[in-house]
């Protein structure tokens, strides 16, 4: 199964795929909590924001009036929890008329890199 792992960029860790917008349901928040837990337990953890998930990266977010934890504030703690590899799907940004100036974190990657990330992860958790 390891035969398609591609050398230096092989990730071989846990990939968390965030595909849903924040606040409408609990998925975004649960995904973030899972990422923080994976990171703090020392697992090699990557996060990919794709499809509706890219809305999670908009700032500023002020979720006080809807009584939810601020998703962007929580996400900004990822590096402290040793989750340093945060990726954002370029195509998903384009579809939503967003650019790097609109988002608060992550490295923007094209579809080929997204495919590589998926193919080289040992396990994928989708939120």
């Amino acid at each position: 199964m390891d035969k398609q792992l591609t050398g230096k960029s092989a990730n071989k860790g846990i990939l968390l795929v965030f595909r849903h917008a924040p606040y409408g349901n609990a998925l975004a928040r649960e995904g973030l909590e899972a990422a923080l837990a994976c990171g703090v337990m020392g697992a090699k953890t990557d996060v990919l924001y794709i499809n509706e998930g890219v809305w999670q990266l908009l700032e500023p977010q002020d979720s006080g009036a809807i009584d939810c934890k601020n998703q962007a504030s929580m996400a900004s703690a990822l590096a402290l929890y040793d989750v340093d590899d945060i990726w954002v799907d370029e195509n998903s940004l384009k579809q939503r008329n967003l650019s790097s100036a609109d988002i608060n974190a992550g490295k923007i990657i094209n579809t080929a890199r997204v495919q590589e990330l998926l193919a080289t992860s040992k396990s994928i958790l989708s939120f």
Binding site: L36, V40, K69, S73, M74, S76, A77, L80, Y81
Partner: peptide, 15 residues
Amino acid sequence: QRFELAPPMRPLVKY
């Protein structure tokens, strides 16, 4: 206040 999280040991030490 900043992250809305009560940190476990590793992130606390880092911070």
